[in-house]
């Protein structure tokens, strides 16, 4: 614990800022019902009310409280992105490790499938699949998880390949250790640092991806509060010089910036350790 604190103290200002922001978002997401003045989908006033008493940030196109929606948006958007990233990671890293450890035709098959999936731009593929299966949160989560898992697969496979050829893994094989031991004791602990960094980056991509789909009206569906669709629904206000619709967009940007700052520091640290 002490070592962790010391490490944090040595972090550059950008990383400290990032950690602070991430903790803040987590707090807001967890305590959303306590922090909000109104209900998530409750219509409490007229349409597009201005900032002021009762509605700190005014109301949206249906007369719901902006601040409330913004806070619930943290919970919904981040929660869904987080879940999707975890799914993508489980799928990508398990298959990636297996491909590296077993090699041969398993590796060939998985790698070719991933090659093909990656030959189609993710957003376009996402749009196509959503046309076929229809737009819903479950569909979106699954589609994005599968698409992003291809990138996790590539990284996990490459990292594991680098470790599998190490002499200590060869020593373990020659000792007669089984696949499970080699994966869990020899490969995984050494693959962890790059995978943790990748998790941060993937989360950013997934988060932006979901926001983009929601913005296009194809992601998280109303009445669930979500930042991407909030921008879309209230965008007209901008032409009247009101910056309210920029706030959910800024909320997205700030979180991704924060995560990127932390990942950047982490990568710098990890590469420094190698030298």
């Amino acid at each position: 614990m002490n070592a962790t604190l010391k490490l944090l103290a040595s972090a550059p200002w950008s990383a400290k800022f990032g950690i602070f922001i991430i903790l803040g978002y987590a707090f807001v997401a967890i305590f959303a019902p306590v922090l909000t003045p109104y209900g998530e989908t409750e219509i409490v006033g007229a349409e597009f009310e201005l900032w002021g008493d009762g509605f700190i940030l005014g109301t949206d196109s249906l007369g719901r409280d902006m601040l409330t929606r913004l806070i619930y948006g943290a919970r919904n958007t981040i929660g869904i992105a987080f879940l999707t990233t975890i799914l993508a990671f489980l799928l990508g890293s398990v298959t990636g490790f297996l491909a590296a450890a077993i090699s041969g035709w398993v590796d060939q098959l998985l790698s070719r499938v991933v090659d093909v999936l990656m030959a189609i731009p993710a957003l376009i593929f996402g749009l196509l699949v959503l046309t076929i299966v229809g737009t819903s949160i479950t569909n979106m989560v699954l589609v994005i998880a599968v698409l992003e898992s291809t990138r996790v697969f590539r990284l996990a496979r490459a990292v594991a390949m680098g470790i599998v050829v190490m002499d200590y893994v060869e020593a373990a094989r020659l000792r007669g250790e089984g696949l499970w031991w080699i994966m869990s004791r020899e490969v995984l602990p050494n693959a962890l640092p790059p995978l943790v960094a990748e998790f941060g980056l993937r989360f950013c991509f997934v988060f932006l991806f979901i926001s983009a789909l929601s913005f296009l009206g194809l992601g998280i569906q109303p009445p669930t509060a979500d930042w991407g669709s909030m921008v879309r629904d209230n965008a007209t206000l901008i032409t009247f010089g009101d910056i309210t619709p920029l706030m959910p967009a800024a909320a997205i940007a700030l979180l991704t910036v924060a995560v990127n700052f932390v990942v950047d520091w982490f990568l710098h640290k990890a590469s420094g350790l190698k030298e």
């Binding site: 932006l208 926001s211 991407g228 921008v231 967009a249 991704t256 910036v257 950047d264």
Partner: peptide, 13 residues
């Protein structure tokens, strides 16, 4: 690093 973190619609608006 910040600007790759921005959603396109944020930059646009």
């Amino acid at each position: 690093l910040s600007s790759i973190s921005f959603p396109e619609f944020f930059v646009a608006y």
